[in-house]
């Protein structure tokens, strides 16, 4: 079942168009930076972007920071929101469940497919950014946010790899919200917009001092913690909390999705 869903996701033209569009934004930013030589002022713009002009090796991290706040979650919400609701809208969900396939297994297969999409999208963005960045801005040893000596190639590769994994993992909460909503409605658009509404609410609450007590529980709270991988020494505190928070969100929301999907009347 999982392989069927993975193959379906990989063969869809929409999957690759989405990833290409995701890739296009940081690439466009890199081209504009390289042609105008006008970087953002230090301390402004996405993380690492102001330092990219002098070191293309930083561009994978900058590219992740560019797509992380909006484009990546939108892409993940679109794919996850379509997972069950898309089948219902197309009228194929009923026929899918006639096969000797448990609903729980189908849900897990859908989740694995969304996770795979997320990881592929993040890896493609980072790898493309590496080639674009080093080609346009040149290559130099990777600095740390804390100053001091640059990272060795092995350290730089390891930390960038961990950042890619962390950003991918950060998207699982979005995927889980969209997947849960996808089991409630027959419209993928409604599920996607619902997930995005949750994200926007979380982002707004993060900016309010009055909501400070809620911050540790907001799904977007630790998204930017991948920057902590580039401090010296690595600041693990938020990274660990970010992973734990996503695991809790995924666990609870999938449990709710399972409770709903396995007990609802499927009529479409």
């Amino acid at each position: 079942m999982i392989m069927v869903e993975l193959r379906k996701m990989l063969r869809r033209r929409r999957t690759w168009v989405t990833i290409a569009l995701l890739d296009a934004l940081p690439t466009l930013v890199a081209v504009l930076l390289a042609t105008t030589n006008l970087g953002p002022q230090p301390g402004t713009g996405p993380a690492f972007l102001s330092a990219v002009l002098s070191n293309g090796n930083l561009f994978p991290a900058a590219a992740l920071a560019i797509v992380l706040p909006l484009f990546l979650p939108v892409a993940v919400a679109v794919v996850a929101g379509d997972a069950v609701a898309g089948e219902a809208q197309a009228g194929t969900l009923r026929y899918l469940l006639i096969r000797p396939v448990g609903r729980t297994r189908l849900l897990v297969a859908k989740l694995v497919s969304v996770v795979a999409f997320t990881l592929i999208a993040v890896v493609v963005v980072a790898v493309t950014a590496y080639f674009v960045g080093t080609h346009l801005f040149g290559s130099a040893p990777l600095p740390t946010v804390s100053g001091g000596p640059t990272l060795s190639p092995a350290q730089a590769t390891l930390r960038t790899g961990l950042a890619i994994l962390y950003v991918g993992l950060s998207m699982l909460g979005v995927a889980a919200v969209a997947l849960l909503l996808s089991t409630f409605v027959d419209s993928p658009l409604a599920a996607t917009l619902g997930a995005l509404a949750v994200l926007i609410a979380s982002t707004v609450l993060l900016t309010l001092d009055a909501a400070h007590a809620l911050n540790p529980y907001l799904p977007t709270r630790y998204w930017l913690a991948f920057v902590d991988l580039f401090r010296q020494p690595i600041l693990w505190r938020d990274l660990v909390r970010g992973v734990a928070l996503q695991v809790v969100y995924v666990g609870v929301l999938l449990l709710a999705a399972w409770a709903n999907f396995t007990t609802k009347d499927v009529t479409s």
Binding site: G43, A47, V145, S146, G147, V227, L235
Partner: peptide
């Protein structure tokens, strides 16, 4: 002492 913010640091 490092003052850390989401995208930078003062040490």
């Amino acid at each position: 002492v490092d003052t850390v913010d989401p995208v930078g640091e003062h040490g």
